[in-house]
Nucleic acid binder design. Sequence first.
DNA 1: ATAAAGCATAGAACCAGTTCCACAGCAAAA
DNA 2: TTTTGCTGTGGAACTGGTTCTATGCTTTAT
Lengths: 332, 332
Amino acid sequence: MANIRDVAKVSGHSVSTVSRVLNQKGYVSEQTKSDILSAMEELNYHRNDLARALSLGKSYRVGVVLPYINHPYFQKLADAITEKALMENYQVTLLPTNYNPDYEMRYLDMLKHQAFDGLIFTSRAIPFSRIIKYRNFGGLVCCEDTFDYPLSCAFTDRKKSFGNVLQILKDAGYSHIGLTVSRSEIVSQSAKLTTKSYENVFGHSIPRGMLYRDAKNMYDGITAAGKLVENDPDLEVIFANGDQIAAGALKKLQEIKHPALVIGQENLSSSFLLDFSTVDHRLDSIGETAFDLLFENKIIKKEISSRFITRGKLNEIIPDLDDDPLDKLIDK
Amino acid sequence: MANIRDVAKVSGHSVSTVSRVLNQKGYVSEQTKSDILSAMEELNYHRNDLARALSLGKSYRVGVVLPYINHPYFQKLADAITEKALMENYQVTLLPTNYNPDYEMRYLDMLKHQAFDGLIFTSRAIPFSRIIKYRNFGGLVCCEDTFDYPLSCAFTDRKKSFGNVLQILKDAGYSHIGLTVSRSEIVSQSAKLTTKSYENVFGHSIPRGMLYRDAKNMYDGITAAGKLVENDPDLEVIFANGDQIAAGALKKLQEIKHPALVIGQENLSSSFLLDFSTVDHRLDSIGETAFDLLFENKIIKKEISSRFITRGKLNEIIPDLDDDPLDKLIDK
DNA sequence: ATAAAGCATAGAACCAGTTCCACAGCAAAA
DNA sequence: TTTTGCTGTGGAACTGGTTCTATGCTTTAT
């Protein structure tokens, strides 16, 4: 493989001039430029990205740390980040952890070793206190609220958005509400926030049997709906922790001809196609924002408002909520 | 950031000795080693992966070229590749193309620019003839049959496995068979192979209305089943181009109480949970093999046998096929 | 006429590693 | 006693880029 010095030699010009041609900056005469370009052609020269990255101290690579690459939530986030990154000429490496702390630390070490310019944590098993130690080694952003930790983030306040939905349901006169949650690690603390929100709005904890745990996919949704109806035949609403789960629940409800409503999360195509309400956490916006924050030189915490998309029967009962609220910016 | 020369200076030893400690090879006395290690500690030294990669001419990164990162077929492949790669201390970068030839060429250029040690094409829009021009720039493997092109591959012979399934159906006395296919690019040529296989087995082309095109997801499966039953009320089997599509089709069939069987592909959890038959193309094995072939210095073409997993009614009709056949190796 | 500004180029240092080669000391074998 | 082989170490060249600085020339402004 020919290098820049070979090109310089063959073209009869200096290395720095070749570099200037390569990067199209600085002064180069037309004649010199064409000499060099034809030398490159002749030698079949192509610049080495690694050497460039070393010299620049910048590799134009970012890593996205995520537990599972086949989970719709993280997929949507990764998709949004990748799209934005490609636009800015960055490459994205997906770093699956399975919530194994060793893997998470390994990826942080890669940041330290300059394998990445930055790392986006979509979720994590290790505490923030360990992550912030790597702050000096590159960009670092989380896709969840980092509270008082000195760490940039783009997030939705789940407690707020869950509370919002539950308040709306309460105001509309619903009281028999079943909830499904994932194992709490999947989206950090999401399960706890769900129950907390319920308590805040209704003033009492979730009645026995009205909380279905460990709901991960459509089939869990089917099971969950069965259990919830069994525990409360007067069930009015199932607030699920994802559209796939909601879709499964809806399927079951239709099968047993139970009139309860279903509410999902993430606004996936299933919620649209099956016409049920959903909380859109704007993952695309979160992903995009997370990337933007990566190379800011101050710590920025950006809250993205979620939207409650009402569909079907709920849309008739409840006035239109689509007021397109501006994202709140908290600068610390 | 401290570098290896700083460590050398502080520890009072040479750069090459520090390097030897770093890589744990060559002769180093215990005393020297501990001097150097404590100097590293003191300076908070961490080796720069980029510089190492440049020097070694090896970056321990591979790219996986795939059209969509949120398609179960490519996801399963990417998952398998990633898992294997991590075991061998390689990093995997997912390179989505949307079947845009410009993107595919861009990724090939990255290979040329040493951004990757190798590239795995799970699918592609550009012809093999363009890909093989990049053979000298690093590892290059396709996840489909490359026929006479000098390009390593790990693949299932879809014509063979489709033919196998159709032959079994024919032998079992079925003749009213509906098929769904994706847009032909999704899995290269898969649609054509499906129709070809049908013609080979049944001796005539697919009857009008028995081929549903452009099936991508569960909802297309619902539509497809509706259309196919409409076109042939005596429909006996739907052979779908994916488990999600088969799941949708099954849902529709149950809804309209039609007794047709459903056969899917890829052995996703849905086929297991809904208990329908499926063709397992062993994507995990293909992905793993593809990675293994990446750094072989000869061109190897490995065919992975697919398995037909019969479930439900079909499993009662048809004798057990689970003979665990060995993968065939074609060395060229 | 002279200083300032702009154009064009080359040289050398720098990024942070790896590795080949030379050399020295010492013990065991010839 | 000489040779061989092993251990331990350092120097320098090498990977392939970028960029700062110096220099000489031309053009324009004062």
